[in-house]
């Protein structure tokens, strides 16, 4: 499984609105899945809605095209929290 932590207004894709709760979505792993694919499965447009992405706590400028591994943790921030962007 891929563990996706969502922040800011992306929390709604985890069915959460209260920022005090962790907003986590689990996406089943399959070989060949990219970060962008994972986001699309959740319903998030990886190009328009996302500013920056952490993979297992590592900020990655080219995260969208990276292949995910089973058990990965993604941290995904929206555009309007763009302290992070590339």
């Amino acid at each position: 499984m891929i563990e996706v932590h969502l922040y800011g207004d992306l929390r709604r894709y985890a069915g959460k609105t209260d920022p005090r709760e962790e907003a986590i979505v689990w996406v089943p792993y399959r070989p060949g899945l990219t970060v962008a694919d994972v986001l699309r499965e959740i319903g998030i447009d990886p190009e328009r809605q996302v500013s920056n992405i952490f993979i297992n706590g590592h900020y990655d400028y080219h995260a969208r095209s990276r292949l995910v591994q089973d058990g990965d943790r993604l941290g995904v921030f929206p555009r309007n929290m763009a302290l992070l962007y590339c």
């Binding site: 922040y7 952490f54 706590g57 900020y59 921030f77 309007n80 929290m81 763009a82």
Partner: peptide, 21 residues
């Protein structure tokens, strides 16, 4: 205006630095 610092203050960094470990 409406950017990260203006909306959330410097405390916007909590989730970011926490995610970064």
């Amino acid at each position: 205006k409406g950017g990260a610092l203006n909306t959330y203050g410097t405390n916007v960094l909590v989730n970011i630095m926490n995610e970064a470990g």
